[in-house]
Amino acid sequence: MTHSEHHRPDGTDDATVAAVGKLTEALETVERARGHLYSFHQLTGSADFDLGDAAELLEKAGHHRAADRVRAELVGRNVLEGRWTFQVVEEYDDGYYGVVKAAERDIRNELVAGRRHVYEAELKEARRTHGRPGHEATPHQAVSNEATPRE
């Protein structure tokens, strides 16, 4: 991605850049929540297999009633009414997540020509120390600086 792909389009005001930046920040939080939901999905699946293993160990130890209870009440149990975690993940992806992601993309396309992270790029430009190694505006400038001998 080039440096110019992060510049605000001509005529775009500060309030618009800030608003679209906040919308993107919200999407990023939704992305993080989605990652936690996938962790929940995988951890719950692992726990279900552990419950099955626990039932087998209880059986081998002679605790048949306890093993039967674990198998009947816990192994393969829904986490929400009628749903295993894969169904929760799918419903989230197809519903809330999909709607937020589409709205952010559509509004960003409409208001800042689809450019991503315009707010952050301007924040970077304002906060970096120009001309100092490690503060280059783009990766290309960093590579150029490495090729230039330092005094």
Rank of each mutant, 00 (worst) to 15 (best):
T2N: 14
H3N: 10
E5W: 05
H7M: 00
P9G: 10
P9Q: 11
T12Q: 07
D13S: 09
D14C: 06
A18D: 12
A18I: 04
A19M: 11
L23N: 07
E25R: 13
E28Q: 15
T29G: 15
E31Q: 01
Y38E: 02
F40Y: 14
H41T: 11
Q42G: 14
G45V: 00
S46M: 01
S46T: 08
F49D: 15
D53T: 12
A55P: 04
E56T: 14
G62D: 12
H63M: 06
A67L: 00
A67K: 00
D68K: 15
R71M: 14
R71W: 13
A72T: 13
G82C: 03
Q87I: 06
V88Y: 13
V89E: 01
V89S: 02
D93F: 05
D93T: 10
D94W: 05
G95Q: 13
G98L: 00
G98I: 08
V99P: 11
V100D: 00
V100T: 11
A102G: 06
R105P: 14
A113L: 09
G114I: 03
Y119I: 07
Y119L: 05
A121E: 08
L123G: 14
T129F: 04
H130E: 14
G131I: 02
G131L: 06
R132C: 07
G134H: 09
A137H: 08
S144K: 11
E146P: 00
A147Y: 03
